[in-house]
């Protein structure tokens, strides 16, 4: 018997770019992706939500600042409040911060320049729905590509909420404390600047992003059994 394919919503805003990439990657890793239009006020029945990368609303005003008002975001807030796993990648991370589902804010890179390259990351926590397949302290190679990825943490952000850090000397954007991924206090909403969906097919470079996305598929599958 094959394992159930859990349904995972991928929000599509005007200007989302990595929505199809995320759908392809999640599908390859055993999920059933559903593209959900930003104007829809309700989510279909899903077991996880992904906010993909891109330039929603052209990053006008401020990255993620307009997308947070999309009708679908109200449904995402409710889904997260119910304990559902929500993953925001790059622009998705920016939107989650703007929506106050995650602490802190993403500022323009310290270089003031867009940067696209592979970076080395260190896994700080493996007890999240997004990193369960990783080993503590494991090094992952996953690309970044962003202009506004400099994470500014609120004062007193506990270390427990830092899930991934850039390896020493690898910080591409000036993020405080080398933070690359942050989880909320409840542990079910994660934002990260690197793009795991671009590191699933080893022929394209690294396959390390599959560990993150497959962890999410696992968590979604578990939730689908609980809610069956």
């Amino acid at each position: 018997m094959s394992a159930r394919r859990p349904r995972i919503a991928i929000l599509v805003f005007p200007g989302s770019n990595d929505d199809r990439d995320a759908a392809w990657a999640l599908s390859a890793l055993g999920g059933e992706p559903l593209l959900v239009w930003h104007a829809d006020a309700e989510l279909p029945r899903v077991d996880a939500v992904v906010l993909p990368g891109g330039f929603s609303y052209g990053d006008y005003l401020r990255a993620g600042a307009i997308a947070r008002f999309a009708p679908a975001m109200e449904a995402v807030v409710a889904f997260a409040g119910d304990g559902g796993p929500v993953l925001g990648i790059c622009n998705g991370f920016q939107i989650l911060c703007e929506a106050r589902l995650l602490p802190g804010v993403l500022r323009p890179n310290a270089s003031l320049s867009f940067v696209c390259r592979d970076v080395s990351l260190v896994v700080e926590r493996t007890d999240t729905p997004f990193t369960a397949r990783c080993e503590p302290g494991q090094a992952l190679t996953i690309p970044v590509k962003h202009g506004d990825g400099c994470y500014h943490a609120p004062p007193g952000l506990p270390d427990e909420q830092v899930v991934l850090r850039y390896s020493p000397g690898e910080n591409p954007n000036g993020s405080e404390r080398d933070i690359a991924a942050v989880v909320n206090a409840d542990g079910n909403v994660l934002g990260l600047m690197p793009h795991p969906e671009h590191a699933v097919d080893p022929l394209l470079g690294s396959g390390d992003g599959a560990l993150i996305l497959a962890s999410l598929v696992d968590a979604a599958r578990e939730r689908s059994y609980e809610h069956a």
């Binding site: 199809r20 990439d21 320049s113 696209c116 590509k145 969906e197 671009h198 699933v200 097919d201 394209l204």
Partner: peptide, 24 residues
């Protein structure tokens, strides 16, 4: 090249920098 997104689309097998790029 690092100022350009050369990965979106998840096809880039050979990245920019050496002769031609290859897209899967």
């Amino acid at each position: 090249f690092e100022r350009y997104d050369h990965l979106v689309g998840s096809r880039t097998v050979r990245r920019p920098g050496l002769d031609a790029a290859v897209l899967r």
